[in-house]
Amino acid sequence: MSFTFSTFVQQIINGLSLGSVYALIAVGYSLVYSILLFSNFAHGGFLVVGGYACYYLLTQWGYSVPFSMLGALLASGLTAVVTERLAYKPIRERTPITLYLLIASMGVNIIIENLFVVTVGGRIRALPRSTFPTGVFNLWEGITISSSDVLSLVTAVIFLSLLQLFLSRTRWGLAIRAAACDIKTAGLMGVNVTFLISLVFFVAGVLAAVGGVFLSVRYSLYPQLGNITTKAFVAAVIGGLGSLPGAVAGSLILGLAEMLTAGFISSQMRDLVVYSLLVIMLLISPAGFFGKKISEKI
């Protein structure tokens, strides 16, 4: 493939669009990490729950797109809260070692994935195209942007801005930032830490669902769709685990790197580039661009 300016611009647009979906997932991931200091690998499961909730609300029950979206966000948010209560809280109360939480989260991810395989089957589904805008805008000289890309970019910006406002302007947002700094001392301020953790999981679940729905639109929906969170995880590590601006920056870098590789080298090289970036980042600056200076990163 030869280098052309229009391909370059086109792949930048595609990269930003993909990166914005990664960002929604990575930010939730990082938020949980910042409070409990473990990588929640069940995050992919939350995303799948959101995707299927949206699918069934649209196709089986015939609800409108906004209502189905809302249903998906709630389903995913509640799954996250229930997961924390059933799987993580008992462990948190017994041991301060977060490795157990990490292992439990891997287990939960497998459980959620297989629940869908058993109940609705493993076949690949598509969200009905008609319900989401499908038009393509011609921007300039063959450079296009699809309306679903526009929609996912705009939605990502809206949700990330809402999160930013919530964290910087509200009482509970301040409590979450304090807990990210020192959760035990946050408890000494009269913050109900159990509730705070549930709230964080709910927010992470909601963001994952938004990502899940857009991934289902962009690609398709299947029980293993959650595995794509590995990419969001890589993005969060590159940006610096536990840092929300870092998660967004890392996601955009990753989205751009993937799309530019696909545009100028080969689509098959995408993952190679992604994981090379991860290794290089860990070698040069293990804490990522904005990360907390903590030795353990998994």
Partner: peptide, 23 residues
Amino acid sequence: VPEGRRVFSSLTVEENLKIGAFT
């Protein structure tokens, strides 16, 4: 006032006072 002070180092002085009045 916990041992070792434990101020929220990544928050401003103002935010530390604000969270003190959380309840």
